[in-house]
């Protein structure tokens, strides 16, 4: 009868059966709200982001926040040890989380983390990649598509310049990085489905 919300941002993957679903969600919400606020602050720091309309800023953040968090926290997934470390410092084996019914989504997250980690990005490259991720989010609901496309183009150019100038002999890194964008969209959809399923039928 225990309820499961095995997100690394949650305080604990399993809540006692005595706790109501609403209580569990509210507790989880308190855990992920600071991380979401940090993504908003990060977005504000992207040159040009705040020149977009407020509505377009909201739309990009709605579809891109989880993707940015996935990149930011991919180091919580240890592909060698097959463990996930929650933000509270507690580490869980993939096997134990899989037993809680989190297999498919976690497998995809491990796969993504391993691929991104293998690229060995520096912190400033990772930050610029997160900016590209956010501005490459779903165009659904965007009013001024031209302004978003221009910002995206500028950010991709900046990322390419940074990476190719730092590693002139490696021409594969930049395209490999862009290939992670569709992975993130797929993960975003899987993650939304999982959370919505919990909200409907925990």
């Amino acid at each position: 009868g225990a309820k499961v919300l095995a997100c690394p941002l949650n305080s604990c993957p399993v809540a006692p059966a005595s706790r109501s679903s609403q209580e569990m969600w509210e507790s989880f919400s308190q855990c992920f709200t600071p991380a979401v606020k940090e993504v908003v602050e990060f977005a504000k720091s992207i040159p040009g982001f705040q020149t977009l309309t407020q509505q377009d800023q909201v739309m990009l953040l709605k579809s891109g926040t989880f993707q940015v968090l996935m990149v930011r926290f991919c180091s919580l997934f240890d592909p060698k040890e097959r463990t996930v470390t929650f933000l509270n410092g507690q580490t869980y084996s993939l096997a134990s989380l899989r037993a809680l019914g989190m297999g498919v989504l976690l497998d995809a997250m491990f796969d993504f983390s391993e691929k991104l980690g293998s690229l060995g990005l520096e912190p400033d490259e990772m930050a610029l990649f997160m900016a590209v991720v956010l501005v490459s989010a779903d165009r659904c609901g965007i009013v001024d598509v031209g302004a978003v496309e221009q910002l995206q183009e500028n950010l991709i150019k900046a990322l390419r310049t940074l990476i190719t100038s730092r590693r002139p002999d490696d021409t594969t890194l930049f395209p490999k990085l862009l290939l992670r964008l569709p992975d993130l969209r797929t993960l975003n959809n899987q993650h939304s489905d999982k959370l919505l399923a919990f909200r409907i039928d925990p």
């Binding site: 979401v36 908003v40 909201v58 939304s192 959370l195 919505l196 909200r199």
Partner: peptide
């Protein structure tokens, strides 16, 4: 469920975080 971010309460948090900035912005 075409708008998961709204259904999960994400939009509300995002709007409030953005509005905080707008309130600080000079006229």
């Amino acid at each position: 469920f075409s708008d998961p971010a709204s259904n999960l309460g994400l939009e509300d948090i995002i709007r409030k975080a953005l509005m905080g900035n707008l309130e600080d912005r000079p006229e």
